[in-house]
């Protein structure tokens, strides 16, 4: 229920950002649309702690700027490697541990890996993510486990109310 309310709040914010019209008719239609969307989402059973992660919202303040910095750095590295070509590029596959407690954390980790150019997660299994890396540099950056630790911290105190299907092996 809490998640449904939070979804409604998020949808309201989305509507206000998109619309920018403050006519009564549009506002009424907007309210009706938001309710309809929440109803459909409930029917689809996609409101759960994966579908709507409210528990990590505040931890993200430190994580996402760090991720942006990583993205910029690896963008520059990959761009250099593409321009240089030849020996700078050495494609490789590696496996890194993903020590997040539940599936959502692992998904965030895997997506962060993919979002940083130079590394693409090509498989996710219990606790292990298979990564394709373009160069030694990006692969080594991932092997240090820095990102893994940060995503763990992002999850904070793992939510005890894990529902079935959340992250059981």
């Amino acid at each position: 229920m809490l998640q449904a309310i939070s979804l409604a709040a998020a949808l309201t914010a989305f509507w206000v950002l998109l619309s920018g019209y403050w006519i009564p008719l549009i506002l009424c239609l907007g309210a009706a649309s938001i309710l309809a969307c929440v109803y459909i989402a409930r029917r689809m059973e996609i409101i759960d702690h994966e579908g709507h992660p409210i528990h990590i919202s505040f931890q993200g303040i430190t994580y996402f700027p760090w991720l942006l910095k990583e993205i910029v750095l690896s963008n520059i590295a990959v761009a250099k490697a593409i321009l240089k070509g030849g020996s700078a590029i050495r494609p490789q596959v590696l496996q890194v541990p993903a020590s997040q407690r539940d599936a959502l954390g692992q998904v965030i980790y895997a997506n962060s890996i993919t979002l940083t150019p130079g590394t693409v997660s090509i498989g996710i299994d219990e606790g292990v993510i298979t990564v394709h890396a373009l160069m030694d540099e990006t692969a080594d950056g991932l092997r240090t486990g820095d990102m893994n630790a940060r995503v763990c911290r992002l999850e904070g105190d793992p939510d005890p109310r894990r529902i079935a299907g959340g992250g059981q092996p």
């Binding site: 949808l11 309809a36 969307c37 989402a41 579908g51 998904v107």
Partner: peptide, 12 residues
């Protein structure tokens, strides 16, 4: 997981 998060926004 990502689609679960996206679908309500797509509908809205």
């Amino acid at each position: 997981i990502v689609s679960k998060q996206l679908i309500p926004f797509i509908l809205l």
